[in-house]
């Protein structure tokens, strides 16, 4: 396993909720990442934002790791959930909150 894949595995295993995104949660650099952050904030969940623009190794590596071609990407308890379209559909259907509850993810303090 290459270094980038090991680093990504560690990030998604060390944090309950991880959003690989362009920019930071405070300053998203892309409309889709911005939407993903807004959805997580609505769910009142704490998350680790990983800015792929600051790390080329992760930017390329995450696409292979998830077998998913675009950013943002959401992981919950080590499991790939999807990109911003899936997050939005799940949020609107109440399924994202269900998933977070099921996986016993703590609310943001």
């Amino acid at each position: 396993m290459s270094n980038s894949q090991e680093r990504i595995a560690q990030i998604v295993n060390d944090n309950d909720v991880v959003l690989f995104m362009k920019g930071t949660p405070y300053f998203p650099q892309c409309g889709f990442s911005s939407r993903a952050v807004a959805i997580l904030e609505h769910c009142q969940v704490g998350f680790e934002g990983v800015d792929v623009l600051q790390d080329q190794e992760i930017r390329q590596g995450i696409k292979a790791y998830s077998d998913w071609p675009t950013i943002p990407q959401l992981y919950v308890k080590g499991e790939f959930v999807g990109g911003s379209d899936i997050m939005m559909e799940m949020y609107e259907a109440g399924e994202l909150q269900q998933l977070l509850d099921q996986k016993q993810v703590a609310k943001a303090s």
Partner: peptide, 27 residues
């Protein structure tokens, strides 16, 4: 599943999503 559907669309489009096209929203 939602995930499977998007994977099917991405797979059918080959190198277009994320490489030849910057952003692709899929419904």
């Amino acid at each position: 599943s939602r995930l499977a559907r998007q994977r099917m669309v991405n797979a059918a489009l080959g190198d277009i999503p994320g490489q030849r096209v910057h952003a692709l929203a899929i419904r």
